[in-house]
Write a protein that binds this DNA or RNA. Structure first.
Lengths: 201, 201
DNA sequence: TCAAAACGTTAACAAAAGATAAGAATTTGG
DNA sequence: CCAAATTCTTATCTTTTGTTAACGTTTTGA
């Protein structure tokens, strides 16, 4: 994907939250960078501060922790979704997890310093601060829903819900990652699938 | 607690995120309201849009869902913490859960409309928008941590972690609410406690 | 003050999940 | 193109959790 198309994807993404006129957009563009993360390469590593937030314009990444030598996948980002180790990026503390490309992934990125400069800008600062607020609110709600699901639903109910909403997760992601995402083991997910098959058959 | 003290609590809370000079603070004050929620009274109800965000200055509340006629407690707010059904408040959609006072609770509240007026204000809008962003980022990180705990830890590990960090939750909240908070049943938490007793004894 | 409700623990049993291993099918990468 | 790695399922066994019920203790509220 060429640079212009990628930047336009970013512009469209921003437009879902705040409307920028041409002048404002031109103010923003110099801060943006395009980069490609090859499959299996890391966007974030434990122990290092995550200095970038990105918009995935093509590809997909997964977030995972390593516990007792095993990878536990907690989340994914696909096209038109943001990508960052938010806690590390926002607090400037060392990251606790990996973020790794599942496919060759093209991103439009913004560094932490660029972000702060944008927020401080007299012209677009207020509007971009609003953008930042709305983004954070959006993800806050996503996480709140997910916590609620963990507290109120069984793994089987969570999986059924996932089947209903039927995100890309189901098409593009190996099942053992989805199992982790649901908070269970791959073996357990396989059994749940079997249970559901029997019922609907 | 008198009005002035309560308002000062709010001012101190804001000061943890952005610094307001006296003029800016005076700009903000007219939008604030003080209210008291009697024990067992609801701050939010399912089906109704949550129109207020509040700062708890005295007391405590719990968030719970009702599933199959049973209450499942997912969260709490204590002194110097915000209080709202964020999803409902932010998206203007009907609330999915109850928020109920555990004790007589005094709050400083702000309505959704007031919030929008403040954000739009030419004088303090940018700064308050930043406040809103930082708050949302703060809670985003809290929820992210909690999701990570659900994905990577066992209930027993989550409970041990809670014992270490030893929040007020442990002192002021019945154990069966804490069990829900951890994503398990009260009976199961009782067994976990028994297991831990045996090990450390 | 006193009866009712709420709370925490324990027991017994059923259901579900974790751990480990094996095997078949598919995908990957050189 | 082919060997190696990955993925998913299944089986077996162990551990944990859920469910229901009972019991004493504490708290609550009229």
């Amino acid at each position: 994907m060429d640079t212009l198309t990628a930047l336009n994807k970013f512009r469209e993404y921003v437009a879902m939250f705040v409307l920028l006129d041409e002048t404002e957009w031109q103010q923003l563009v110099p801060y943006l960078e395009i980069s490609i993360l090859k499959k299996k390469k890391n966007f974030a590593d434990p122990g290092k501060v995550c200095n970038q937030v990105g918009l995935v314009v093509k590809g997909a990444v997964r977030y995972f922790n390593v516990k007792d030598g095993e990878e536990i996948t907690g989340y994914f980002s696909f096209e038109n979704e943001l990508l960052s180790s938010y806690k590390s990026f926002l607090t400037r503390q060392p990251c606790a997890n990996y973020i790794q490309a599942l496919e060759d992934t093209q991103m439009v990125t913004l560094s932490y310093n660029a972000m702060q400069q944008i927020y401080a800008d007299a012209l677009i600062g207020h509007k971009m601060e609003r953008f930042g607020r709305l983004i954070a609110e959006h993800y806050l709600i996503c996480y709140e829903d997910r916590v609620t699901a963990f507290v109120t639903q069984t793994p089987e109910e969570r999986y059924n819900k996932l089947l209903e909403t039927g995100g890309e997760v189901l098409q593009r992601i190996p099942q053992h990652y989805i199992a982790n995402f649901l908070g269970i083991t791959p073996v357990s997910l396989s059994r749940i699938r079997r249970r559901i098959m029997k019922i609907s058959a």
